[in-house]
């Protein structure tokens, strides 16, 4: 097949356009909700638009966005990774304790170590759920416990403190470049690279294929086990990265770091349009979902709405998102079917 022909402008009929529109509307919908939420909050409390407040918002969202990207890769293949928060804790403590004990270690080496640890955890999850034949829900529920337990054993009650961390490292967590927090630059880079890879590379497309119809993927010669394993390793690596960034951001790390994040991350992906049974969704959506959830939290805090509403709001939003997805999905499918039927008749 030729590889160098220039892309031709699309000749699309309404069916294709309709489907594409819906996909885009899905992400536009979140952007819309974000803007609306932001504007309303700013009107009620102008301090929300302060540089500090915005910076906090972005910082909070960044770690979740990175985790949500990894989670998306896994969910798209009809799997799930509940263990990300425990992996984050391991990697965060690893990076923190290494740099505390050996202040001379270069910062890049901390990233290599943290990501490496995440990849090892992801490999463990992936091997068990592909070659071991254990459902990923069970494997990662198990490692959610086991990795967290290992973190407790390892820290043995100790914690890493900000004072022992070098400034160069801490600056990563709190500094900014051209007004954008460094942490968010990491997140944006991760989202863009992952989004590009999922869209423009064979392996990325095959992840969707596996989640959309596993049997068809097998018949099409897709090496499902290997790719699912890859998704788990990448998800682990990103959790590892998030762990290093967690340490840089908060300075204080103990074995409870990130506890409970896993459900927020999955919620972010689902709110962002990633179908829990695979085949559908983008990392952009998931990252936007993470941003939306964080914004809700921040705006409720700044509006002094009792912080107690926060979790209920996130839960309600998540349910609203899946109900809407379902309604739109049913409509779209029947629209596409009618179009197909009319054309044949």
């Amino acid at each position: 097949m030729s590889t160098d022909a220039p892309p031709v402008p699309g000749r699309k009929d309404r069916g294709a356009r309709l489907a594409e529109l819906v996909l885009r509307v899905r992400e536009l919908g979140i952007v819309g909700a974000l803007v609306l939420l932001f504007v309303v909050t700013v009107i009620m409390e102008p301090r929300f638009a302060d540089a500090d407040s915005l910076r906090d918002l972005l910082l909070n969202a960044s770690i979740f966005a990175i985790l949500a990207v990894g989670q998306t890769l896994v969910i798209v293949t009809r799997n799930i990774d509940l263990s990300v928060s425990s992996v984050l804790a391991l990697s965060a403590y690893f990076a923190g304790s290494v740099v505390s004990d050996h202040p001379g270690v270069p910062v890049w080496a901390l990233f290599v170590m943290g990501i490496g640890m995440g990849m090892a955890c992801g490999l463990f999850n992936g091997v068990l759920s592909t070659y071991g034949g254990v459902p990923s829900l069970v494997v990662t529920l198990g490692t959610l416990y086991a990795f967290r337990g290992l973190a407790f054993l390892w820290t043995d009650g100790r914690q890493v403190n900000a004072e022992t961390l070098p400034d160069a490292f801490l600056n990563l967590g709190s500094g900014s470049v051209l007004g954008v927090p460094t942490l968010s630059l990491f997140a944006i880079a991760v989202v863009l690279v992952a989004g590009w890879w999922m869209r423009d590379f064979r392996a990325g497309r095959q992840l969707y294929a596996i989640g959309s119809n596993p049997e068809a993927a097998r018949l099409a010669g897709v090496r499902s086990q290997r790719l699912v394993l890859l998704a788990f390793v990448v998800c682990g690596a990103l959790a590892g990265l998030a762990g290093v960034l967690f340490t840089a951001r908060f300075g204080t790390v103990d074995a409870t770091a990130g506890a409970g994040y896993e459900l927020t991350v999955i919620a972010a992906a689902v709110v962002g349009g990633v179908a829990i049974f695979g085949g559908v969704g983008t990392v952009y959506g998931a990252a936007l979902g993470a941003l939306l959830l964080t914004t809700i939290t921040s705006s409720l805090i700044i509006l002094k709405v009792s912080a107690f509403w926060q979790q209920a709001a996130i839960g309600a939003l998540l349910i609203l998102a899946i109900v809407l997805d379902r309604v739109v999905g049913v409509r779209l499918e029947s629209a596409l079917r009618q179009r197909s039927a009319r054309r044949v008749a």
């Binding site: 799930i80 979790q311 996130i314 839960g315």
Partner: peptide, 27 residues
């Protein structure tokens, strides 16, 4: 009735019901 996957639904209500608990009596 909604035909939604229970995994997604109950992750949502996991947050929702816990949130409502806080709404009811706070801390």
């Amino acid at each position: 009735k909604g035909g939604l996957p229970s995994l997604a639904v109950t992750i949502g209500t996991l947050a929702l019901f816990r949130g409502l608990a806080y709404v009811v009596i706070g801390d």
